[in-house]
């Protein structure tokens, strides 16, 4: 199932937290060789994990991490605005309705990584629609372009640096009801169940209570 947890809520789920941070170390440090730091526990963490970001996590039936991504609003400090301005038109992208997504990670132990990726894309759409966001922004490498295409939700590319396998890009995902339904179809999860997971985490936001009444 999908869990939406802020960093300060993660400690109530130690197994989920620890397996996520170890899976991130495996994916970003060991496999992709990114310049990320891994601590003595084998956890991959950076400065943005310290900003109380919101994690969207696929939790397996065993209560461990199956896949995850991390969100921060672009009005505050974000990776894309701090380090990748050359990919976003020469300056920061900031708006209350645009959130940054980073650290898209699938557990190396997952037998069905493609499915989990689809679940995460659905959860991203659910988040955007639920909070009335217009877009997510993120930085990704060349191999992800194909993955996003396969998942049926390709970002609009803002800018690219480098070529071939070394290329990195900043991209935008536009939120809307249609993409949410499409992702639910891809994930094989009913929109109602996806909505249930969202409401369980956040309660009904003010606008949503109104439209349901």
């Amino acid at each position: 199932m999908i869990r939406y947890l802020y960093a300060d809520q993660l400690d109530a789920f130690p197994k989920l937290r620890d397996t996520m941070l170890r899976d991130r170390a495996t994916q970003f440090h060991a496999r992709l060789k990114w310049d990320v730091s891994v601590d003595e526990n084998g956890f991959e963490r950076d400065q943005y994990d310290a900003l109380n970001p919101l994690y969207v996590i696929w939790e397996t039936q065993m209560g461990r991490h199956g896949g995850s991504m991390r969100f921060l609003p672009t009005t505050g400090d974000t990776m894309v605005n701090d380090h990748f301005e050359h990919l976003t038109g020469g300056g920061a992208i900031c708006a209350p309705t645009i959130w940054e997504t980073t650290r898209f990670c699938i557990s190396p132990d997952a037998p069905d990584g493609g499915k989990i990726a689809a679940h995460l894309m659905l959860a991203g759409a659910e988040l955007g629609v639920g909070f009335g966001l217009s877009h997510a922004i993120g930085v990704f490498d060349a191999r992800m372009v194909r993955i996003y295409r396969k998942l049926g939700w390709e970002p609009d590319i803002l800018g690219t640096d480098g070529t071939g396998r070394e290329a990195i890009s900043a991209g935008l995902w536009e939120f809307g009801g249609e993409i949410r339904l499409k992702m639910a179809g891809r994930a094989g999860i009913s929109p109602e169940l996806s909505r249930h997971w969202f409401l369980r985490a956040f309660g009904a936001p003010a606008q949503e209570i109104a439209s349901a009444a």
């Binding site: 672009t74 009005t75 038109g89 920061a92 992208i93 900031c94 708006a95 209350p96 309705t97 645009i98 217009s134 877009h135 922004i137 609009d156 803002l158 935008l172 536009e174």
Partner: peptide, 16 residues
């Protein structure tokens, strides 16, 4: 750029 991307530049400029 796409119109979608243009919308984001306008949104961001508007906010700033």
């Amino acid at each position: 750029i796409s119109e979608n991307t243009l919308r984001v530049y306008i949104e961001s400029a508007r906010f700033k």
